[in-house]
Amino acid sequence: MAEVAALFKQFIYRDLAFVFGGSIVLLSLAYAFRGCIPNGWQNLNWEKFPPASIIFLIAAAAYVIGYAVQDVGAILPLRLTSTSTRFEPDCFSQWLYKRFSRVEWKPIYYVAPADREFEFEIHMGRLEIPEDVLQALERIRSLKVISMCVGGCLALSV
């Protein structure tokens, strides 16, 4: 049970954002095409399918859609939903950052080519970083992924 809890803490709760975002897209599609469901589908006997399997299938489809929306949005020219930590923020983003954290944006230098392995060292736990700091970093990263995924899915649903 402890292992499941640890797994949930590390991975699954972040993946739930993909399921949630994908569900938004699926629901908006269902809403937009509510009058266009073919007659064959309406006559389907849904009681034949166990509810658990239907829920699992919808959740899996939602996960794939959420994941695809977030990552494809990061590839498209505007890179709206990019979760990369290597970008030069524009003036608007810098202004937002200042409003949000009340601290001026400072140019970063850890992304120099020689420091490419720096992030990996943190991820691999090779540095003597206190646990609290790593947890705070993990929380920021999770919130970023959740925001980008759900935001991208909402934008697509619009």
Partner: peptide
């Protein structure tokens, strides 16, 4: 999300 990305940086 962008703000969080900047915070992470």
């Amino acid at each position: 999300g962008r703000i969080k990305g900047m915070q992470e940086m």
